[in-house]
Amino acid sequence: MTAEIAVLLALWTACEAAGQVLFKRGVDVLASPAQGRTFPLLREALASPSIWAGMLLHGVEFVLWIEILGRLPLSVAFPLESVSFVAVLLASRVFLGEAVPRRRWLGVGLICAGIAVLGSAA
């Protein structure tokens, strides 16, 4: 049971991080915000394979998360979610080459701690 949840969570985290990287890759090739308006983006976005892949992963993630919520009380599932913040930051550094200054890591640390405290209060 616990191992099953661990696998579900690991998969969920991986989907989240990969999905976000794909989204970012996808929008980066679209027109810059200065050129287009905010929302014609949808039409362009649906023409991007990368964004489609990200949406697919998010679909998987959606199912996984409903599954996780069904097995764990919210007060437990909630703090575990904060793993995704670390995962996405790592992924954006490794796969997108974004510079992540120490200040941001510190901020994400605070966020994770805050989420954990909120979870214990729920």
């Binding site: 989204f23 996808g26 929008v27 915000p33 550094r93 974004e98």
Partner: peptide, 12 residues
């Protein structure tokens, strides 16, 4: 979210 990502780095 995509509209936001277009003008900010993912890690930010």
């Amino acid at each position: 979210w995509l509209a936001i990502l277009r003008s900010s780095p993912l890690s930010a």
